[in-house]
């Protein structure tokens, strides 16, 4: 099962986490085969929010929500269950300074594909 570990952090405290330490963790989790994708993000000051309302594009500066901790990066991991995902998240270095939100992935492509296949089967049996 896939989980997305969202790394939230007060950007003012970023200097408490040396890049070398984060990259060392990233290397080890990628080597273990548990990591599917991971990236760090530029500062939230570089964020742009995009909305389309009534067909009209609205672009604004900054993140969608102002919070004390900002999204600073992510790890997409593979784990057998939530307990294993929690163990992985606990080792992500920013967990010491900020927080890690662990979210299960919703298999949206698979469920749409399964619905399409059922529809197809139904038509054939008619």
């Amino acid at each position: 099962m896939k989980y997305l570990c969202l790394v939230y952090l007060d950007e003012n405290r970023l200097d408490e986490l040396p890049d070398e330490e984060c990259v060392a963790y990233d290397r080890s989790i990628r080597a273990s085969g548990q990591c599917i994708a991971s990236e760090a993000l530029q500062s939230v000051q570089s964020a742009t929010t995009v909305r389309v309302r009534s067909g009209k594009l609205a672009v604004t500066d900054g993140p969608f929500a102002e919070t004390k901790e900002q999204l600073a990066g992510f790890y997409m991991i593979e784990a057998v269950d939530l307990n294993e995902a929690i163990q992985v998240a606990a080792k992500i270095p920013p967990a010491r300074v900020g927080s890690i939100e662990v979210r299960p992935i919703r298999p949206i492509r698979e469920s749409v594909a399964a619905a399409e296949a059922r529809q197809q089967g139904h038509k054939q049996s008619l």
Binding site: D81, N83, V102, P104, R106
Partner: peptide, 14 residues
């Protein structure tokens, strides 16, 4: 169900 919280007694370490 969705987050797959496992049905188990935690390992001794936890």
């Amino acid at each position: 169900r969705e987050a797959r919280i496992p049905y188990q007694v935690p390992a001794p370490s936890e």
